[in-house]
């Protein structure tokens, strides 16, 4: 997506919208573990927006940006695996 799409206002509303969606799906007991995985993935998505748009890493050198994005992806994935391993 074009870098210019992510203006401060759009990032703000996107973050608030994701927060609302996270809140709603966490209340949906019918979704079971899918709700938990969704909650973690949405937290990771918000974290990515913070890194790229709030911290301005979208315009940082690729290696710099990928290092932080990679770390975020790894932690989010590990938390999801631990959540599934925990069961229920």
């Amino acid at each position: 997506m074009d870098k210019v799409f992510f203006t401060p206002h759009r990032t703000l509303f996107l973050m608030l919208a994701i927060t609302g969606i996270s809140f709603l799906i966490s209340h949906d007991s019918a979704m079971g573990q899918l709700a938990g995985i969704g909650t973690l993935l949405l937290a990771g998505a918000k974290g990515r927006l913070v890194l790229l748009d709030f911290m301005e890493l979208r315009h940082a050198p690729a290696l710099w940006r990928w290092g932080f994005e990679g770390g975020l992806l790894a932690v989010t994935a590990l938390l999801a695996v631990l959540y599934l391993a925990g069961g229920r």
Partner: peptide, 26 residues
Amino acid sequence: LESGAIYWHLVDLLWMFLFALLYLLQ
């Protein structure tokens, strides 16, 4: 000033996960 701003955003970033893990994850 940007470094100060980045530190604030770090606080925001960490809360995104704390909120999900402590409050939302069922």
